[in-house]
């Protein structure tokens, strides 16, 4: 197996190149300093700021592996933040750790319910994932606004602020959350059979059903995981701005998450997925974002850059481009190998 054939080679290479370019353009980029036992620096910022996108993208990876998509993640983030901050705001003691813990748990439960709702529409009613999650994408922000009473709820709560900007030992707490979730998902994938069963459902739902796989439960579960992770991301986001902003929370994050998944080498057609790939994809996006900011481009304009990245990636992955490249590289590869990549659509011969 040559190294560039490895599925994570290109994403990793892109990340390394991006970091290298930054390091050359601004040497302070790589500098990490230790102040009062806490690490600081541009790289640390990237790790910290990437937490919300990381969580959403990981959930999205699992949903995409089942041949689905979750467009409602931004709205779920908004609802989760609104729930948590409204509870903290309404409590007698916003600064108490207990209050914040209760608020976080309730917000996560609400997010779980929202994810279960998406899962219900997709797996029980058989509605196309994009359409099913569109409903919540539309209504979710309305729900969030209703919870906050139409205002941007701001709170002053030290334990809440800690979630996004605090440090646990030397590392930012938000980054620790990312690491814990990545590790948990990695362990579940490695130590249980969920990974391979999810891939089986995504590759061929009917063959999986005949093999006795609980397709419905697995799909349902994927949306619930996506919901909870989006909820957690919403809390981190709200903690970061110390407010619940129903309109701005998770705005456009569905596209960034999908982009991260695709950059990480997971196909939008479902099936084989890579947690590590998504992690790399998120880091690429966050580094690129940092680079764009460094270039002095207002952050509101950065979507233009990402639009070009999306277009480049989807064109590179399209069958037309692959065929063209294959034709350029000569038709030496046996057709049998090619036929695996092109998913067998229906029956081929009969």
């Amino acid at each position: 197996m040559r190294i560039w054939r490895h599925r994570l080679f290109w994403p990793s290479a892109a990340l390394v190149v991006l970091v290298a370019v930054n390091a050359i353009a601004r040497p302070q980029f790589l500098r990490i300093t230790l102040q009062d036992g806490e690490l600081y620096g541009a790289l640390i910022d990237i790790l910290r700021n990437s937490a919300p996108l990381m969580l959403v993208a990981l959930g999205m990876t699992i949903v995409i592996a089942t041949r689905g998509i979750d467009l409602s993640v931004g709205a779920v983030m908004a609802v989760s933040g609104a729930v948590a901050l409204t509870i903290i705001d309404g409590s007698g003691d916003p600064g108490a750790t207990g209050t914040v813990l209760v608020a976080v748990v309730v917000a996560l439960l609400v997010s779980l319910v929202l994810g279960a709702w998406n899962g219900f529409l997709v797996s029980a009613l058989g509605i196309q994932p994009i359409v099913a999650t569109l409903v919540l994408m539309l209504a979710g922000r309305g729900v969030a606004l209703l919870i906050t009473g139409g205002f941007i709820t701001t709170v002053n709560s030290a334990p809440l602020a800690y979630i996004a900007s605090g440090y646990l030992t030397v590392l930012p707490f938000a980054f620790i959350i990312s690491v814990v979730v990545i590790t948990a998902l990695g362990l579940v994938e490695r130590r249980t059979a969920l990974g391979v069963l999810t891939e089986a459902v995504g590759i061929n739902p009917e063959a999986s059903r005949l093999a006795g796989v609980r397709s419905r439960g697995i799909i349902w579960g994927a949306y619930m995981v996506s919901g909870v992770l989006a909820g957690l991301a919403g809390i981190i986001y709200a903690s970061n701005i110390k407010a619940a902003d129903a309109n701005a929370a998770g705005f456009l994050i569905e596209l960034y998450a999908i982009l991260a998944v695709v950059l990480g080498g997971t196909s939008l057609a479902g099936g084989k997925f890579s947690i590590a790939g998504t992690v790399i994809g998120v880091l690429i996006i966050q580094t690129l974002d940092s680079t764009i900011l460094f270039l002095g481009v207002p952050s509101a304009q950065s979507p233009v850059f990402f639009a070009f990245v999306v277009v480049a990636v989807v064109i590179a992955q399209s069958p037309r481009t692959r065929n063209a490249l294959r034709a350029l590289g000569g038709a030496r590869r046996p057709r049998a190998a090619a036929s695996v990549q092109d998913r067998p659509k229906v029956e081929v011969a009969s």
Partner: peptide, 14 residues
């Protein structure tokens, strides 16, 4: 075991 190996049996990418 289904008669339709490709559509209902083998998971080609696994």
């Amino acid at each position: 075991s289904s008669e339709n190996r490709r559509a209902e049996g083998i998971l080609a990418e696994l």
